[in-house]
Design a binder for these strands. Structure first.
Length: 563
RNA sequence: UGGGGGAUCGUCUAGCGGUAGGACUGCGGACUCUGACUCCGCCAACGGGGGUUCGAAUCCCUCUCCCCCAGCCA
């Protein structure tokens, strides 16, 4: 009964179109405008467009929708190509630009004029806005609406020839100024822009609008299903209008689905831009950014991202997905893939008073608890060690089973130790622990069966590798920062914390982007830009789930309620 | 107030006239040389009101709420 496979509504449509013979092959396109970096929302669109085609043996175009020069650049084009590739998709020879079709588009516009379906308007932008009317009032016809075909053709040719300045004229479709759909009130088709184009260079000084270029580009590429987000829903009548008038050989169908919004993250291009321009983040690829470049640098695995958008699903309902969903996908893939290592982020020194000086033992540590085939590594153990400050509490609650004065704890892959003495500085801070180890409890030896409740991680002081470790948290405190006018008020001031950590020597070998689990802490990888052999710079990808932290938090809240 | 869409556990999502299911989260427990992982269990939803029907999340009517549209942006 549960065997019936379930498809989202778009895959259902595509399945039906294939089954009915309406299409023999599915052709889709991913059409970003190269005016910014791709973000988590685009991951959804990329996976959908490339996914449905791949699943049905079809093809997908990567089309740069570059109809508005001045906002677009080569930098963004390159970033888009890099990001789509990184996600694991291949457009082969199907990299196109809307600008590749400027010639055909121009001819189509002329045909529209000849058919009496388009005219050159000489109203100013402000006047056009006034004439358009409002949501509840019909618009008025422009005084230029009834120019003759000859005059329109002449004017349009002269627009193209560069005889007019920016804004002097615009080519408009002649549809219906009283349409309840604002998009049908004689939308602009072409505007004059005397600026060079990132792909077409100086060839043009008039540029087509999205609505005119998009559907026709789809037709030229024989796109069968043109998938876009919900806000284009009421552009569909216009999309279809152009196809109805110009009757291209292939007729694409536009289908809309809802955007993917991630809680506590912005995907508005304008807001992303603000973050970059004001230096709130270090760039488009700052590891806190929800851009694909940022997530890649942060260390999010591709498989996790793809799984995430699959779980999010394809529907028409507005979504605001919890971070936890993404984090779960990341932990799931990394938990299986990432080798384990040890690192101390906030070091506290431990001296084993009964351990011989100038002695080093090599402890064998498993690289993955569930995958013995990944082998082991040797960890040097000596008299002076770093442990995590959090793993010691002078006055510990009953449930705390790490180290406390007089208490015992196991050092992972090492010995059981007892805390004998707490050393403090003048300010009263704990600066050192003097402990004794139990020689009979060495990990893996026959006599090591004695159990203690807690196990903590450690690094030998003498052998430790210094590292600057970047701990990231959400960029915003507001669940939906997209909806906030001033993002500054929504920023999380603690989105980045940098600590000086101590790494086990094996971490010397880590290569850029290679993710490992620091046991009991989380998943980490070297920063692809700032890390170097001489100075380790490590990003925290995501923490481990931490039920102790949760308990602590609850206890804290209860305490606050009592007080 | 015009037009276009959308409402199912806290969050995603399945359902297509026949027992409202899954994932994430949350809660409880088992296990543990990672308070991780894994395993077990639990909480939790059809926006409201009418109808049709033996039977409605599903069909009809109605109300409510949410999102999008007044760029020479995409």
């Amino acid at each position: 009964m549960s065997e019936t496979e379930t498809r989202d509504f778009i895959r259902q449509i595509i399945h039906d179109d294939l089954e009915s013979g309406k299409h023999a092959e599915i052709v889709t396109r991913f059409p970003p405008e190269p005016n910014g970096y791709l973000h988590v929302g685009h991951v959804m669109s990329i996976c959908l467009n490339f996914g449905v085609a791949a699943e049905t043996g079809g093809r997908t175009y990567l089309r740069l929708d570059d109809t508005n020069p001045g906002k677009e650049s080569k930098e963004y084009v390159d970033a888009i190509k890099r990001d789509v590739h990184w996600l694991g998709f291949d457009w082969e020879d199907r990299l196109t630009h809307a600008s590749d079709y400027f010639g055909k588009l121009y001819e189509s516009a002329c045909r529209l004029i000849e058919m009496g379906c388009a005219y050159v308007d000489s109203l100013s932008a402000d006047e056009i806005r006034e004439y358009r009317g409002t949501l509840t009032e019909a618009g008025r016809n422009s005084p230029y609406r009834n120019r003759s075909v000859e005059e329109n053709l002449d004017l349009f040719r002269r627009m193209r020839a560069g005889e007019f300045g920016d804004g002097e004229h615009v080519l408009r479709a002649r549809i219906d100024m009283s349409s309840p759909n604002m998009n049908m009130r004689d939308p602009a088709l072409y505007r004059i822009r005397h600026i060079p184009h990132q792909n077409a260079g100086d060839e043009w000084c008039i540029y087509p609008m999205y609505d005119f270029a998009h559907g026709l580009s789809d037709a030229y590429e024989h796109i069968t299903h043109s998938l876009c987000t919900l806000e284009f829903e009421d552009h569909r009548p216009l999309y279809d209008w152009f196809l109805d008038q110009l009757k291209p050989e292939h007729r694409p169908r536009q289908i809309e689905f809802s955007r993917l919004n991630l809680a506590y993250a912005v995907t508005s291009k304008r807001k992303l831009n603000t973050l970059v321009e004001e230096g709130i983040v270090s760039g488009w690829d700052d590891p806190r950014m929800p851009t694909i470049a940022g997530m890649r640098r942060r260390g999010y695995p591709v498989a996790a991202l793809r799984e995430f958008v699959t779980r999010a699903g394809v529907t028409k309902k507005d979504k605001l997905i919890e971070m936890g969903m993404l984090e779960n996908c990341i932990r799931e893939t990394l938990g299986e893939q990432a080798e384990r290592r040890m690192a101390v982020l906030r070091p506290l020194k431990v001296i084993l008073t009964n351990y011989p000086e100038n002695t080093v033992e090599m402890m064998s540590a498993m690289n993955h608890p569930a995958r013995p085939e990944l082998g082991t590594r040797e960890m040097p153990f000596s008299r002076e060690l770093w442990i995590e400050q959090d793993d010691f509490m002078e006055e510990a609650p009953r449930k705390f089973f790490r180290l406390r004065p007089g208490g015992e704890v196991r050092l992972r892959f090492g010995y059981i130790i007892r805390c004998d003495e707490v050393v403090k500085n003048a300010a009263g801070d704990v600066v050192e622990l003097r402990c004794s180890y139990d020689p009979d409890t060495r990990s893996g030896t026959g006599s090591s069966n004695r159990k203690v409740k807690g196990t903590i991680h450690w690094v030998s002081c003498e052998h430790a590798v210094d590292a600057s470790v970047r701990l990231y948290d959400r960029l915003f405190n507001e669940a939906n920062p997209n909806a906030v006018d001033d993002i500054h008020s929504a920023l999380n001031p603690k989105s980045l914390e940098v600590v000086d950590g101590k790494l086990e020597p094996a971490l010397m070998e880590l290569s850029a982007g290679q993710a490992v689990q620091f046991e009991r802490l989380g998943y980490f990888c070297p920063d692809e830009k700032d890390d170097s052999a001489g100075a380790r710079v490590i990003n925290r990808i995501v923490t481990l789930r931490d039920s102790w932290a949760k308990l602590e938090k609850q206890a804290m809240q209860q305490q606050n309620q009592v007080v």
